[in-house]
């Protein structure tokens, strides 16, 4: 079923909307939750929270892209849950993702002012739009969907090392871009 139709069903309060979401995006929701949460129970609870959040937020929200909206909702709920329970996956992989990103910024700049999250997000979006689709995809798989380089390599049909290399390059380019935008000195 097309996303537009599913959204229409949400708006008409048709409960089958959730079934359709589950059919089309159930695997993705569980997968994103799994990337952040180690425990099966946490994942399943997160998935339930996602469905509830979708039901409660559509309407009034009318997502331009249902897959993006679902991804964002899932990610936020999974991160919230992982933070609240301190349930970092795999001994701190989420933390590792943060450290990777931060390593490029560790030049003594006062980041507390600079990283107002919305502005940073906008700039990163702008930067990503200037990159190739595959570069964007790899970056977001890693830093938005929290996928491991290993899993990204599977999805992209290339070697894990190639993924790491490209992530490194993208991070360096992003750092240069942010500097140009005045984010870094």
């Amino acid at each position: 079923m097309k996303d537009e139709k599913i959204i229409e069903m949400f708006f008409s309060r048709d409960e089958r909307a959730l079934e359709e979401v589950d059919k089309k995006y159930g695997d993705l929701i569980y997968y994103i939750a799994s990337n952040f949460l180690a425990l099966k129970e946490d994942r399943e609870e997160c998935v339930n929270d996602v469905y509830l959040a979708l039901w409660n937020s559509i309407p009034p929200t009318k997502p331009a892209s249902l897959s993006a909206y679902i991804s964002e909702v899932t990610r936020r709920l999974a991160m919230k849950k992982s933070r609240s329970s301190n349930a970092w996956k795999r001994g701190g992989e989420v933390k590792l993702v943060g450290e990777e990103l931060l390593s490029m910024l560790d030049d003594g700049t006062d980041l507390s002012e600079l990283y107002e999250s919305r502005r940073a997000g906008e700039l990163i979006s702008k930067f990503l739009l200037s990159r190739s689709e595959s570069e964007r995809r790899i970056f977001l798989m890693r830093y938005f969907f929290d996928m491991s380089p290993r899993d990204i390599a599977k999805q992209m049909h290339c070697g894990e090392s190639a993924i790491k290399m490209r992530l490194l390059r993208t991070r360096k380019k992003l750092a240069e871009y942010l500097k140009k935008e005045g984010i870094m000195v």
Binding site: D27, L28, Y30, Y31, I32, P63, A64, S65, S67, A68, Y69, I70, S71, E72, R75, R76, M79, R83, V94, K95, V97, G98, E99, L101, L102, L105, L111, S112, Y115, E116, S117, R118, A120, G121, E122, I124, S125, L128, L129, E133, R136, R137, L140, M141, Y143, F144, F145, M147, Q155
Partner: peptide, 30 residues
């Protein structure tokens, strides 16, 4: 300090939705 604030990770919450959709649509989850 930055990491503990998780601001950079939070920034990823503000990525353009079209970019998220582009990637989400390509992910083949188990």
């Amino acid at each position: 300090k930055i990491f503990n604030d998780t601001r950079l990770l939070d920034a990823m919450d503000h990525i353009d939705s079209s970019l998220i959709a582009e990637t989400a649509d390509k992910i083949r989850p188990p």
